[in-house]
């Protein structure tokens, strides 16, 4: 599972430009499901199980990652940009990006030697930032990148200690789990959705929820873990290494209480490490599913990720394993009509 996750994290697919991720996933799951790609680019894969499902269950993971898009190239060859999805200023400063056509650049900042005391205390504004792609002027830069082209953090998956560190763990971990579930035998029929444009406001999930019309949805995600020395108590949200995260509420969704309770109970009964979030924060495709059509019972199973939406999210392989096990179990119990 880690090898697949590494491959997926190292693919580049900013929100709205998921092509490379989609092509890879299609090549992985071909022959394992009845597959279609909708008008927005969502992959909808109907998996045939050993038995017919009592209710229709969809499991969703999004293919896109946070990135940037070129808005302007100035006379000096500097690339101005907007963010696609939320990236904080310090996560941008000094970081490397790779563009769709292969150019590599770094986000520039004024050298600290030339900043006065007041400047050092504030963060620069997004519109003052630019990327150096190594061009000497506008003309040379335009040969390398163009307005409207996206870029993502340079692929950089690696093991650190007992954990993994990579861009795009949000949500290539979800893609990894769904690919694995599609490629192995399933007890019951279910549908996997690999959705687009989550980072732009759950846009892919909105249409996928409509067209798949499920009775229940399970969102497989990466979520914020703040278990760092700089935060304490409930502010830590969830803990890397403490298992899959089942949420009761976030900024996008008040989750189905019974489904949440059943999920926690099933995890306990089956020796799956599971925790919840101690802060009502963040949001994910559940926000689109649970209010689609006449309303859909929805759960979110997440991988705790430190420094999410940065070049270097940190997560635990054992947590990913627990996410996989809990998602598989929830699909079976829902589709089997047991919960």
């Amino acid at each position: 599972m880690m090898q697949l996750l590494e491959k997926l994290c190292n693919l580049c697919g900013a929100a709205g430009r998921e092509d490379k991720v989609r092509d890879f996933i299609l090549s992985e799951i071909e022959g394992y499901a009845d597959i279609k790609v909708d008008n927005l680019g969502n992959i909808i894969a109907d998996k045939k199980g050993k038995k017919r499902a009592k209710i229709k269950v969809v499991a969703d993971a999004h293919m896109d990652e946070v990135g940037i898009i070129v808005t302007h190239i100035d006379e000096g060859g500097f690339v101005k940009f907007a963010t696609c999805g939320g990236i904080e200023i310090p996560a941008l400063l000094g970081k490397r990006f790779v563009f769709e056509k292969g150019a590599v650049g770094v986000v520039c900042s004024k050298p600290t030697h030339l900043c006065d005391a007041a400047e050092k205390k504030v963060l620069p504004k997004l519109d003052s930032l630019c990327i150096d792609v190594g061009a000497k002027d506008k003309k040379e830069a335009e040969e390398m990148v163009c307005v409207g082209e996206t870029a993502v953090f340079v692929p950089n998956f690696e093991k650190i200690g007992n954990l993994i560190c990579a861009k795009a763990l949000d949500d290539r971990v979800g893609c990894t789990v769904l690919i694995k579930l599609l490629k192995e035998e399933a007890e019951y029929d279910f549908t996997a959705v690999f959705s687009v444009q989550e980072e732009l406001g759950l846009r892919g999930a909105k249409v996928a929820a409509f067209s798949t019309n499920p009775d229940a949805a399970i969102i497989v995600e990466g979520t914020t873990a703040a278990d760092v020395p700089e935060s304490s108590g409930a502010n830590r949200v969830c803990h890397v290494g403490d298992g899959a995260v089942l949420s009761f509420m976030d900024r996008s969704t008040m989750y189905d209480k019974k489904l949440y309770d059943d999920g926690r109970r099933l995890a306990d009964q089956n020796g799956i490490k599971c925790q919840t979030k101690s802060v009502v924060a963040g949001g994910n495709n559940a926000g689109a599913y649970h209010i689609a059509r006449g309303g859909i019972r929805t759960a979110a199973v997440s991988l705790p990720c430190r420094y999410i939406h940065s070049s270097s999210s940190v997560a635990s392989p054992s947590d990913a394993e627990n996410v996989y096990r809990l998602v598989k179990l929830l699909i079976e119990k829902l589709a089997g009509g047991e919960i």
Partner: peptide
């Protein structure tokens, strides 16, 4: 060093062996 660029920056620690690491950052809602 300008600390503003540090969150999510990768580093190498020269301990008894070389250890890879990354500077922490606290998420926006906190």
């Amino acid at each position: 060093i300008d600390p503003r660029i540090l969150p999510s920056t990768r580093v190498k620690i020269y301990g008894k062996e070389v250890v890879k690491g990354v500077f922490t950052s606290v998420p926006p809602h906190l």
